[in-house]
Amino acid sequence: MLQKIEVKLPQKEYPIYIENGLLTQIGTLVREHWTKVQQVALISDSNVAPLYAEKVRIQLTNAGFQVYLYTVTAGEAAKSLGVASSLYDELLGDGFTRSAGVIALGGGVVGDLAGFVASTFMRGLAFIQIPTSLLAQVDSSVGGKTAVDLPAGKNLVGTFYQPDAVLIDPATLTTLSQRYLVEGYAEVVKMAAIASPDFWQLVTQVQSVAAILDLAEALIQASVTFKAKIVMADEKEGGLRQILNFGHTFGHAIEAGANGALAHGEAISIGMVALTQCFEHAGLTPAGMTAKLQQQLAAVGLPLTSKLIGQADFYARIAKDKKNRGGRVNLIYLKAIGEPAIYPMALAQLPQFVEENLLAVM
């Protein structure tokens, strides 16, 4: 059954649709939202395009759109100013104007890149997300963040640009490798930990990789409902939306330091555990919280530790992260499941905090 979650912001409202088999309705749904758009840039990557691009292209063509498929090489390297610039050139060469639309068909990298291109080309084109990975379906496709990376770090150049719709088909998860299904689940655990005891109870039913697929629709709906609520309260991360960064301050630094050896969700898994361990030892998070997280993440094989934590480059990467605000970072910790809190800390104090509360007690 088609589920619809509304995101209502001061300047824009849009729906998020969730249903198994939704890809068979793409032409109809897109035309409902784009009555005046004719040209469509369908942006995908070398992994997803062979699976779904032709099916989507045919439906869009049958709905009256003129469709151009642009395929980038799969992987984080596609999130670059160079790739964005190449896409601008292709759009110009194909005669795209401000009345055109961009559709992202793929995971988080494609969504971030396509959204960035849509938000900046000719000062903004219509934009729709069709996320095909669990990570993108539960997190990155919702909320309007777009970005590309710089050599210094992830997502350092970007915009807030809300889509016109998000179309989620959980059936696409069956074509993901086990590793990338599991890494997306790390973000589900993050959402559940900061959202509510009820959501956490749902994720405790996941005790195997197969269970992620069995419960996919419920996990996606709970994650999207929660994230939409946070985004509606704080669209541009001025306050409350920062709680969605639970595990990310450490996670981004670990991911960058791993030089491609860790997927995003794997690094976030490690980041959540490490940070929770720090705050539990410091007495701000209840005893047993770290073990609770570890148990849920380990059940599907997610990594829990990294030797990169505490190295000089680890702190240097945190200092370069966009979450650095005037030499301070806001660390997100748990007072309880469903009760996240923000702990401001000077970057200069972070090494001692990690040494005393994590490295010295490992």
Rank of each mutant, 00 (worst) to 15 (best):
A152W: 15
A152G: 06
G153A: 08
K154V: 08
N155W: 02
L156D: 10
L156H: 09
V157S: 12
V157A: 14
V157C: 14
G158F: 09
G158K: 07
T159A: 09
T159N: 11
Y161Q: 09
Y161P: 10
Y161W: 10
Q162T: 06
Q162E: 11
P163H: 02
P163L: 02
P163E: 03
P163W: 02
A165T: 11
I168E: 02
I168R: 01
D169E: 13
T172Q: 04
L173V: 12
T175D: 02
L176N: 01
L176G: 01
L176A: 06
S177L: 02
S177G: 11
Q178K: 15
Y180C: 04
V182C: 08
V182P: 00
E183V: 05
E183R: 02
G184R: 12
Y185R: 09
E187G: 14
V188S: 00
V189R: 00
K190Y: 02
M191F: 09
A195P: 03
S196V: 04
L202R: 15
V203L: 12
S208H: 15
A211C: 11
I212T: 15
L215G: 04
A218V: 13
L219W: 09
I220N: 11
A222D: 13
A222L: 04
V224E: 02
V224A: 14
T225I: 11
F226A: 01
K227Y: 03
A228G: 05
I230H: 07
I230C: 08
V231L: 11
M232N: 05
A233S: 09
D234V: 08
E235D: 07
E235Y: 08
E235K: 03
E235G: 04
G238C: 10
Q242R: 08
Q242V: 02
I243G: 02
G247K: 04
H248I: 07
H248G: 06
T249F: 01
F250Y: 10
F250T: 02
E255S: 06
G257K: 10
A258T: 06
N259Y: 12
G260A: 07
G260Y: 13
A261L: 07
A263G: 10
A263Y: 13
G265I: 11
G265Q: 08
E266G: 12
E266R: 11
A267H: 05
A267N: 06
I268R: 05
I268Q: 10
S269M: 09
G271S: 12
M272H: 12
M272R: 11
